[in-house]
Simulated assay, not measured.
Amino acid sequence: MAIHRNTISKMNKQFAKDVKLGLSETPKNLSSKYFYDEKGSTLFSEIMKLPEYYLTNAEFDIFKNQPLDIIQLLEIHKTSYFELIELGAGDGSKTIELLKVLEHENYHYQYLPIDISQKALDQIENTVAQQLPNKKITPKKGDYFQILNELKNSPFPKVVLFLGSNIGNMEDALANSFLKKLSKNLSKGDKIILGTDLKKEKDIVLPAYNDSKGITRDFNLNLLERINRELDANFDINQFEHVPEYDELEGIAKSRIRSKIDQKIPINSLNLTVSFKEKETIHTEISRKYDDVILEKICTNTGLKTIGKLMDKREYFADYILEKKS
């Protein structure tokens, strides 16, 4: 189906630009940030409920069973007011467990979830309203660093949550740059709760990215379907397959999409035809697994220092507490 010019002008221009660039490079790649259109977000919600996807339950275990330990490591006191800022709150299920204890123990704070998705912010606001009806929150829609920069001049101490091992979707150099930028928007003494998936055996990690129901496969291939929908492309999903891998020594999981045959795919709105050789791949995601050494590496020259670490009962996942020291 042809797309009219006025429809094209309303497209996500950055998405179009990144698709054209990524599929023109060698090797081909697509950014994992484009997984989360409406269908992709729905699929990821299903993934988080899968028995193989241990990450969500592992971090929930920490927030559910160790909230007082989190509070102690944050060195916050009932007599002082602070701002609890979350970057990408998701459904808020983990953070709610911390909020419940902060409310019960009469801490003085404001919760400010930040997200580019109004739908995500509405969801977290509804979740808080249902479980903590007396708690008013301050959702902020926009770019993480734009909002943090706006909040920087606030005189109150800050605790920033970046959970779900989202940091693991970045190469180490990019993760270091992210933490440097985050640190610049904080004041001395501010804290970060950084959720990280830990290095572990392949038999545990790989099924999280290759579940028995094939939902992760559908999530990955939805990137091609999104290009079909939004950029008038003609990817035949049946001619591609999801290829996950995990290097146990390095501690990095990767996802790729692999062409089953030699083929040429027109992307009409980009005036582009993409050629694939049989078994040629598109890199779509990295998921770094951490230990103390790797964590220290990505904190190099950020002004951040680890002051605490909490793990779930199986020691699959860790929430590191970082403090801005300079």
Score class of each variant (00 low, 15 high):
Asp18Ala: 04
Asp18Gly: 01
Val19Glu: 01
Lys20Ala: 13
Lys20Arg: 14
Leu21Ala: 11
Leu21Asp: 10
Leu21Phe: 09
Gly22Asn: 12
Gly22Phe: 01
Gly22Cys: 09
Leu23Ser: 05
Leu23His: 09
Leu23Ala: 03
Leu23Lys: 07
Leu23Tyr: 04
Leu23Cys: 10
Ser24Ala: 07
Ser24Val: 03
Ser24Leu: 02
Ser24Gln: 11
Ser24Trp: 02
Ser24Tyr: 02
Glu25Lys: 13
Glu25Ile: 02
Thr26Lys: 14
Thr26Glu: 10
Pro27Lys: 11
Lys28Leu: 05
Lys28Cys: 01
Asn29Trp: 12
Asn29Tyr: 14
Asn29Phe: 11
Asn29Cys: 01
Leu30Glu: 01
Ser31Gln: 13
Ser31Asp: 14
Ser31Arg: 14
Ser32Glu: 05
Ser32His: 09
Ser32Met: 05
Lys33Ala: 00
Lys33Gly: 00
Lys33Asn: 04
Lys33Pro: 07
Tyr34Glu: 04
Tyr34Met: 08
Phe35Pro: 07
Tyr36Gly: 06
Tyr36Thr: 13
Asp37Gln: 11
Asp37Met: 06
Glu38Arg: 15
Glu38Phe: 04
Glu38Met: 05
Lys39Thr: 15
Lys39Trp: 00
Gly40Glu: 09
Gly40Thr: 09
Gly40Pro: 12
Gly40Tyr: 07
Gly40Lys: 11
Ser41Asn: 11
Thr42Met: 12
Thr42His: 14
Leu43Ser: 05
Leu43Gly: 02
Leu43Ala: 02
Phe44Ser: 06
Phe44Arg: 08
Phe44Met: 11
Ser45Glu: 15
Ser45Gln: 15
Ser45His: 11
Ser45Phe: 00
Glu46Ser: 13
Glu46Ile: 12
Glu46Cys: 05
Glu46Ala: 08
Glu46Phe: 07
Ile47Tyr: 06
Ile47Thr: 08
Ile47Ser: 04
Met48Cys: 15
Met48Trp: 00
Lys49Tyr: 00
Lys49Trp: 00
Lys49Thr: 12
Leu50Val: 03
Leu50Asp: 14
Leu50Ser: 14
Pro51Thr: 03
Pro51Ser: 05
Pro51Ala: 00
Pro51Tyr: 06
Glu52Val: 02
Glu52Phe: 06
Tyr53Asp: 05
Tyr53Leu: 08
Tyr53Ile: 05
Tyr53Asn: 06
Tyr54Phe: 15
Tyr54Arg: 06
Tyr54Gln: 08
